[in-house]
Design a protein around this nucleic acid. Structure first.
Lengths: 345, 345
DNA sequence: CTGAAAGCGCTTACAG
DNA sequence: CTGAAAGCGCTTACAG
């Protein structure tokens, strides 16, 4: 009695198993398995009897048990920074679509830009034996994944490269994009151009800053330290940074914003000021074309990033290419007004 | 030989198991289990030997197998419409955070507003034996979940109610929100007000239309059929609907947009016109305050919706309240300019 | 403190 | 066409 009660509360309710179905249909376990999996070699009559028992009992195969024997779990993990960030939604959706096409489910989790949490999440997914892992790294040391990869977990890094291990990586051309964006500002007459980016431990932030420096160097413009600011993307920090470089006699006449979070805050800061300042942002925003002036951006394709990574992942699982590759997707300059404002003086 | 090869390619690579660890450490299986699960009753020396074997072999416990015995999978499923929609990102993230606090992982999938796909996804999650399911329904008949719920799968519906079954539900006050938004337009002198919403089979679309009608009735304004348009939220459809009600002698002087997708397109349409038209949108948008004029909206808290639903889910799992409840969260009018534009004539 | 046996719900490999 | 036995990698319930 106690045993039955415990069973009912601890286990999956008290779901019928193949054994229950077999008993009710008066057949062997294997026959039920055949029917459930639509395998050949069952007479129509037997099949009907089994199907009736399945319906009567409300049987649903426990895929969790199936997985234990089969090997593959038909699930992939996605570790990203924040599911609520509009950049990662489309990326995640794209990974999901590819997974779905391969019959796999997607488990995703947010690292909140915390390397410890990234590792914890990634390893928890490995313990669940996901077939593969798509990682947008928060940390810069991924040696903790080496045993997992060796054990057969397919792995692809997206948006930022893996740290200290060799792995498939899919990136946007941050360097080239930022370079093109800053060159665009220079072409419109600016020489005093500010750069506000994410924290320096984040690869894309560093690459975009490198693009900025390169464009400035190409134009022969010496860069002042006061024009560059890397740090968290919380509005307060970005606001302070923007206001600092927009003030005083050596104020910048244009700003390059390093990502979508930064851009949003910079747009707010500029909206409060009377003197027009040019702005180009990395990443497109939903209503960018409806702002006044329209927002000029370097757009990257988040969905394409996710799709490419997921396809790469399943190629690994299908036994394809085992040599890590680095894929870089192009960015695109979209001019809408804010980046074409001439210098104030 | 062939057997070893097959094993290596089909199974999880060839990961060491507790048995391997036990053999290497020269102890029994149960002792390894004790160490791995930090159970008491192991001498320091034995523990060290086991730990060494674990490290040397790169052992990681297979949670997939553990789950089979334990009963609970420590995972919950989230079925939503589209992970790429900015409304669902924060909702999903909130569910994830609550799940994480309860030690559970989140598997999510997009129904793409297709009832068949919603069902397929939800049942696939049940087959994986998720402990609970948070569903943003696409369909209006959820009787297919009855056997699962009876078998112990915790279930909560969010954003839209369940169809034809009793279940916990967490909604925003669509009716009240729309009513308040339309009343706001009326208070600013409008009488010819248009409503553009999502498809009529979607609960929130119908509720918001009901709120519109109610506010109009309260003000004694007879509503004309030409002022109301329900349908898909693809830009082309919304554009045609908006242009139709904004044209001709009986053109509306204000529009209430039924959700974020609709609002975005209506803003675009209005931006192209010379005569100012008032607009209130259901759902807030990221840059709403920076548009000119600022966008007046009825805001709902997507994260709070997700959080409330997830907490409700875990309360069910903890054996709490088994009588389905319906929770309705309030909305909030945020005035920014577009809703305060007076009628043109 | 330690471990052998049974079992979770399936599939695999084999035999009839 | 059908099914009994073994096993996937763990945990549970016991016994020493």
């Amino acid at each position: 009695m106690a045993d039955i009660a415990r069973r009912a509360e601890n286990r999956y309710g008290n779901r019928p198993t193949m054994k229950d179905v077999a008993a009710r249909a008066g057949v062997g376990l294997k026959t039920v398995s055949r029917v459930v999996n639509a395998e050949p070699g069952v007479t129509a009559d037997t099949e009907r009897r089994v199907q009736e028992a399945i319906d009567a009992l409300g049987f649903r195969r426990n895929d969790s048990a199936r997985v234990l024997r089969k090997g593959r779990t038909a699930s992939v993990g996605l570790v990203l920074e924040d599911l609520a960030d509009p950049f990662y939604g489309p990326l995640s959706r794209a990974v999901e679509e590819v997974a779905r096409a391969h019959g796999a489910l997607l488990i995703n989790g947010s690292s909140a830009e915390d390397p410890g949490r990234e590792q914890e999440l990634a390893l928890a997914l490995c313990a669940r034996r996901v077939d593969g892992l798509v990682v947008i790294p928060a940390g810069d040391d991924h040696r903790y994944l080496e045993p997992e990869i060796r054990a057969g977990v397919a792995t692809v890094f997206v948006d930022r490269p893996a740290g200290r291990i060799e792995a498939d990586t899919v990136l946007s051309d941050s360097y080239g994009g930022a370079r093109a964006g800053v060159a665009h500002l220079i072409a419109h007459g600016h020489r005093r151009i500010g750069f506000i980016g994410d924290q320096p431990r984040i690869h894309t932030a560093v690459e975009r800053l490198r693009g900025y420096r390169s464009a400035m160097a190409d134009a022969g413009i010496p860069v002042e330290d006061a024009w560059m600011s890397l740090g968290t993307t919380v509005p307060e920090r970005v606001r302070v940074a923007a206001e600092a470089m927009l003030s005083g006699p050596g104020a910048v006449t244009a700003v390059f914003a390093g990502n979508n979070r930064v851009t949003v805050t910079v747009v707010r800061v500029l909206a409060e000021r009377s003197r027009p300042v040019a702005l180009v942002g990395f990443d497109d925003l939903e209503l960018a074309d409806l702002l006044v002036p329209g927002l000029t951006v370097i757009a990257q394709d988040a969905a394409q990033l996710g799709r490419t990574a997921a396809e790469r992942l399943f190629r690994q699982l299908d036994g394809g290419s085992r040599t890590p590759e680095r894929i870089e997707l192009p960015t695109r300059l979209i001019t809408r007004g804010s980046g074409e404002i001439p210098p104030a003086d």
